[in-house]
């Protein structure tokens, strides 16, 4: 009798259950394997670049690091510039949708901003050259005339408007939707009681936002900006089409000589590359992968840590 009581009742393991659950497990693990494979295959194919013959590098660079240096600079420079432009506007849009727009319209307005994310990057590139660059070129000429003494605005001004500043504007438009979407979610999670308490104490709407919504949403804003930064770092076609590139580190924003970015450099040179040239481009791609991976992991870690303590659920 005692042995019978000790045995627990277990559901019969059916073959269908086993097959199905292991299939889902394999699919899930496959994703981790793919991410690892991206790193491994890029690393294997990049190794020849680090020990390449100096003659293989174009221009006056002689090793990989002097080749990739200006590209890293251009990538980070353009991404930071675009972030400076995009973040304030994105916060404004997110606030407009979450707290200012009429409730009934809010969701539809959100879709409109999301449509911006659906426009293919190559179309942004065409638009950047065809519409934006000619539009802003006269402003650049004025900026150089008036503020030329300030190094980033030093001349000579680009005649086409295809400068790193134009690229930054295009990138800012492209990363707006992702930053807006996350800020919007976070702002909507603000505890309603905090907002109502602020209003009940006589705060105006803006004071309520400054005292309740923004402090609550700050970590969300930071991580949304970092996700936007990741997008801007890796954006390829818009930069490749709009920028008129060169191979140096250049701080000037408005001249015809601009530091290229890693991704755009790959897209421009890969179709004609051969031999070790391919490995060199793959190695720069590996750099880009590592940087964006780190930025994204940090951003996601911040968002996730916030989720647990937000008290919104």
């Amino acid at each position: 009798m005692t042995t019978a009581a000790a045995t627990t009742i277990k559901a019969r393991q059916r073959p269908g259950d086993r097959i199905f659950s292991s299939a889902t497990l394999i699919a899930g693990s496959l994703i981790l394997a793919v991410l690892a494979a991206v790193a491994i295959f890029l690393l294997v194919e990049s190794l020849p670049a680090f020990v390449a013959d100096p003659a293989e590098f174009s221009g006056d660079t002689t090793n990989f690091w002097s080749y990739v240096g200006p590209l890293v600079f251009g990538t980070i420079y353009s991404a930071i510039l675009s972030l400076i432009m995009a973040v304030p506007v994105a916060i404004g849009i997110a606030l407009f949708i979450s707290h200012f727009a009429p409730r009934k319209l809010a969701q539809g307005l959100g879709y409109l901003v999301d449509l911006l994310a659906a426009v293919p990057s190559v179309v942004f590139g065409l638009w950047g050259i065809g519409v934006l660059a000619p539009l802003v070129q006269p402003f650049y000429a004025n900026l150089v005339d008036w503020f030329g003494w300030f190094t980033p605005f030093a001349g000579p001004v680009s005649g086409t408007g295809r400068t790193i500043f134009t690229v930054a504007i295009v990138l800012a438009v492209m990363i707006l939707p992702i930053i807006t979407a996350i800020c919007r979610e976070i702002f909507l999670q603000t505890p309603l009681l905090h907002e109502e308490a602020a209003l009940a104490l006589g705060a105006t709407r803006w004071e309520m936002i400054r005292m309740a919504v923004l402090p609550f949403g700050l970590p969300g804003i930071i991580s949304a900006s970092m996700l936007g930064l990741g997008r801007a770092l890796g954006e390829t076609m818009a930069v490749a089409m709009v920028l008129s590139p060169s191979r140096e580190v250049i701080f000037q924003l408005l001249t015809a000589q601009n530091s290229n970015t890693i991704a755009s450099n790959i897209a421009l040179n890969f179709p004609e590359a051969s031999g070790v040239g391919i490995n060199i481009l793959l190695a720069t791609g590996l750099m880009l992968f590592v940087v964006t991976l780190l930025v994204n992991m940090l951003a996601r870690a911040i968002i996730n840590s916030r989720k647990a303590f937000s008290g919104a659920n």
């Binding site: 793919v34 991206v38 890029l42 996700l227 770092l233 890796g234 791609g285 992968f289 964006t292 951003a299």
Partner: peptide, 11 residues
């Protein structure tokens, strides 16, 4: 999976 959504397309 979240991190992978941020991988640059060229990579």
């Amino acid at each position: 999976v979240d991190v992978m959504t941020g991988i640059p397309s060229i990579v």
